[in-house]
């Protein structure tokens, strides 16, 4: 564990807390893509299957359980409890366009052709693009609430911090996993446009509004 990974995990945790608090406090999930949240639930479920087979550390187990549980809570809040506030008219990204290609890629490019390993690889590939329905929703409505922007910033920062963690681990531990690194790069690049708008607008107190 190094500082970059710890900050990455904390940033990820903060993102989840921000999202759940936003939905709970405002009793609304307006502006949030349920499609992205479903994809995250799939990502954590398929990645953390190793909870059943491998023990890494108490920290690791705890975080995995939190990530899986909160992803299902979020989906439940959006599709059941606060269904009436869900922006389904704008949340029209077709998730099969992400699930199918990442499934095929995981079958073709993986470290080991076993069920658990292919599912882990699939989850890495899928996570890298899982935010697209959310970014699509923001681009369709042309704006995002500040709280949604903070959520996206924390969520995007997490994999960016992991990239630094991987650079560190490459030099310090001679450890690297190309699949995670390439997917993490893709994931972080997808946020760049948003990061730019966040820094130039939201941090200056303005609402995140896309140029017409």
């Amino acid at each position: 564990m190094n500082i970059f990974r710890l900050l990455g995990d904390l940033s990820h945790l903060v993102a989840i807390i921000i999202l759940l608090l936003k939905i709970w406090k405002t009793r609304s999930c307006a502006g949030i893509s349920g499609k992205s949240q479903i994809l995250f639930a799939i990502v954590y479920t398929t990645r953390y299957l190793d909870l059943l087979t491998t023990y890494v550390s108490a920290y690791n187990t705890f975080m995995k359980i939190i990530f899986i549980a909160t992803s299902y809570v979020t989906v439940f809040l959006m599709y059941v409890k606060f269904k009436a506030t869900y922006d389904h008219n704008h949340d029209t990204f077709r998730i099969e366009f992400l699930i199918l290609p990442t499934s095929v890629l995981a079958l073709l490019i993986n470290n080991e052709f076993t069920i658990v390993e292919v599912l882990w690889t699939f989850s890495i590939y899928l996570e890298s693009v899982a935010i697209l329905p959310q970014l699509f929703l923001v681009s369709k409505t042309g704006e995002a609430e500040s709280i949604t922007s903070h959520y996206l910033f924390a969520l995007g920062s997490y994999r960016g911090l992991y990239l630094l963690n991987w650079v560190y681990r490459y030099y310090a531990e001679d450890h690297y996993d190309l699949i995670a690194i390439v997917a993490g790069l893709v994931q972080t690049i997808l946020y760049c446009d948003f990061f730019y708008l966040y820094i130039t607008k939201v941090l200056k107190g303005k609402k995140l509004q896309l140029p017409a």
Binding site: R5, D9, H12, R47, D50, T54, V56, S57, N60, M63, K64, F67, N111, E112, T114, V116, E117, W120, Y162, N165, D174, H175, Y176, D177, A180
Partner: peptide, 10 residues
């Protein structure tokens, strides 16, 4: 690099 299938990250 060893092709270990244990993933120690989240």
């Amino acid at each position: 690099q060893t092709l270990e299938t244990t993933h120690d990250e989240l």
